[in-house]
Each structure stands twice: as structure tokens, then as C-alpha cells.
């Protein structure tokens, strides 16, 4: 998209909280969580060619780190730090966790790496249950501290009215998430366009050739794992703020489980591997659909008994993965240019 086209998009996104009801804003926030995580994964899997099924684990690392850093001293371990510092700290800890996994990524390739990374999800499942002083345990979970920016709380506290609309917790969190997503998007685009992105793609296409051209393969892999995990960690912080609770999973299918890792991979594939904009679109599909279907469920009348919005969304994104691989390996990101090309052909 050209730079000018961003202005109306930005204005609409900024004005939405003045018009939309809270449930719709919650749905939008959830899509933004997905978008931040998916951008991280598309850099890792799409740009640098490292398959990862560990995204759910890094979400858990970020979520737990924020809760512990910002949490009050009490029954659970808490450092009582400023929420902003905690957020930055949680992202940094996630990046370090990603970097710690890099030695494995340096040795193991392709599908082997994908399955190796799956082990982190299982490690997270166990640690989440075992380390109750950090996570609060599976039965009760733990309340995260309210996010505050220089003392301004992102909750219902205090009166703030803009154009006759009260800006309460949900609206404030919307703006917070929007700012985080914009920052995440801008940094990722920057990385892709510059030397860093070229090194990632060189490693993806041919490690030996990349090394011959002077790219430090090992360091490049470590850096892309760190960056991707940092994004996942930020998505994890956003997840606890969204749920307003940190609750470790009881099985490997949960908020931070195998299914979440697969959902992020689905976003990245549907959007087009390596495309930052595509990752955002993929998140709108994979994380947006269950939310929107839930909001419309009473109107639609489809959902009776075992047919739930989550189930329908799973079918849609499962089928979307199959269709993308079969017919459009570039994902949705490649559809736009293709249509443009067709129109130009038809005109001439």
C-alpha cells in the first residue's frame, strides 16, 4: 500500500472506539493480538525459512513474564515493577528465550526444526502447571496488573470523555493495542526492507551461499529467533491484558498450546509466507472469524449444539491452508498483485 493510503485506514482505526460497542472492540483487540504474533512468525518462517511450532510457548513466556514483573508482592512471586517497564522486560525475556533455542535451530533444519520446536510447547505446558508461584496454577490462574502508562490506567478508572463517548477500559486497551501493532508492523517492514531482511532471506534460500557472501548464518538464525519470540512475547502480554487473567493450560490444546501455534502458522500461510501485511490479513481471518461469528451467532442461528463458532473457524482456516498450498502458494498477499496484473492485461 502506498503511504497515503495508510492515512484513511489510520483515521478509521482511531475513530472506531467512538462508534463500536465494547464486544466489537474486544473482537478487534483479539485480532490485533493475532496480528502481532503472526508478524513475528512470518519473519521467522517466511523470511528466514525456519519452521516453528513453538509460538504458543513464547506467548506463555511473555504472558508470565509480564504478570510476574508487574505483579504485586503477595502469594505469588511478583516484583511490582512499573507496567511499561514490565512490558518491555517481558518482551526482552521472550527474546532471550528465543535466543536460547537458537543453538538447536543452528543444528536442526526444516521439518526436524518444526518438530523440535514443538517440544517447547510441551515444556511450557509442564512448567506452566508446575511453577505455580509464577503462573498461579491451572485452577485459579493469576490476575495481571492493570497496564498503566506514566500513571494513566488502561482500565475503567477515572473519567475520560471524547466527543460525548466515555473512553473506558476497553477503548483505552484498543488504543494501546493499536499503537503496539503499528510499532510492530513498522519495525518488521523496516527489518524486511533492509540488510537484516536480506540476510534472513539469504539464509532461507541457501545457507552455504549466504555464508560465502559473508552472512554469519548462526548469528542470523539466532537474531531471527530472538525477534520472532519477542513478537510472540508481546502478543502474550497482550493476551493476558485481553483476558485479564493469566491461566496456564490444562492440556496441550489451550491458549498457549499446540493449536495456538498451528493457528499462528495458519495465519502466516494464509497471508503468504514472509509477507508482513499478509500476516495481518491472516490474523483477521484466523483470530477474527471465531470472534465475529460469536458476535453474530444469535442473528445467524447456525450454531446449535456442537457446531460452535470456533469449530466453523477451524474448518475455514484448515481449508484455507489446503487451498493456499494447492492454488496460491503466495497466499492472500499474492492475490492483490495478481488481480492488478490481470486488470492491466485486460485494459491493454
Amino acid at each position: 500500500m502506498s503511504r497515503l493510503a495508510w492515512i484513511p485506514v489510520g483515521i478509521v482505526l482511531l475513530l472506531l472506539p467512538l462508534y463500536l460497542e465494547a464486544p466489537w472492540l474486544k473482537a478487534g483487540q483479539y485480532m490485533m493480538i493475532g496480528a502481532v504474533g503472526a508478524i513475528g512468525l512470518t519473519l521467522l518462517t517466511g523470511q528466514a525459512g525456519q519452521l516453528s511450532l513453538a509460538h504458543g510457548f513464547f506467548l506463555l513466556v511473555g504472558a508470565t513474564s509480564y504478570t510476574v514483573l508487574a505483579g504485586p508482592k503477595g502469594d505469588h512471586l511478583g516484583l511490582g515493577l512499573d507496567p511499561l517497564i514490565s512490558l518491555v522486560g517481558a518482551v526482552a525475556i521472550s527474546a532471550l528465550a528465543g535466543m536460547a533455542f537458537a543453538p538447536v535451530a543452528g543444528r536442526v533444519r526444516g521439518i526436524y526444526l518444526g518438530v523440535a520446536s514443538l517440544s517447547l510447547v510441551f515444556l511450557g505446558l509442564y512448567l506452566g502447571q508446575a511453577a505455580e508461584s509464577l503462573t498461579g496454577g491451572t485452577s485459579t490462574g493469576r490476575d495481571p496488573a492493570t497496564f498503566k502508562l506514566f500513571g494513566f490506567p488502561f482500565s475503567n478508572e477515572g473519567d475520560l470523555v471524547v466527543a460525548g463517548v466515555p473512553i473506558r477500559g476497553t477503548e483505552r486497551i484498543w488504543y494501546l493495542f493499536l499503537a503496539l501493532l503499528a510499532l510492530a508492523y513498522w519495525l518488521a517492514r523496516g527489518a524486511v526492507r533492509t540488510r537484516i531482511g536480506r540476510a534472513w532471506r539469504a539464509v532461507r534460500d541457501n545457507e552455504a551461499a549466504a555464508a560465502a557472501m559473508g552472512v554469519d548464518v548462526r548469528r542470523t538464525k539466532a537474531s531471527v529467533f530472538a525477534v520472532s519470540s519477542a513478537y510472540a512475547g508481546l502478543a502474550g502480554v497482550m493476551t493476558v491484558l485481553w483476558f485479564d487473567i493469566l491461566k496456564p493450560d490444562e492440556s496441550e490444546y489451550g491458549t498457549y498450546g499446540v493449536n495456538t501455534s498451528i493457528a499462528f502458522l495458519a495465519m502466516v500461510i494464509i497471508g503468504g509466507l514472509g509477507s508482513v501485511g499478509g500476516a495481518v490479513i491472516g490474523a483477521l481471518v484466523v483470530f477474527g472469524l471465531p470472534q465475529v461469528l460469536t458476535l453474530y451467532s444469535t442473528d445467524l442461528g447456525w450454531f446449535t449444539g456442537s457446531v460452535t463458532p470456533v469449530l466453523v473457524s477451524s474448518f475455514v482456516y484448515g481449508a484455507a491452508i489446503v487451498l493456499v498450498v494447492l492454488f496460491e502458494p503466495g497466499g492472500l498477499a499474492a492475490v492483490g498483485p495478481r488481480v492488478k496484473h490481470r486488470i492491466r492485461e485486460l485494459r491493454s
Binding site: 502458522l265 500461510i269 484448515g318 484455507a320 491452508i321 489446503v322
Partner: peptide, 10 residues
């Protein structure tokens, strides 16, 4: 391999 993930989900 990614395609089989889609099949598995469905």
C-alpha cells in the same frame, strides 16, 4: 507438510 496440517485440523 503444511497442507497436511490443514487436513489434520479439519
Amino acid at each position: 507438510a503444511l497442507l497436511t496440517i490443514g487436513v489434520d485440523v479439519i
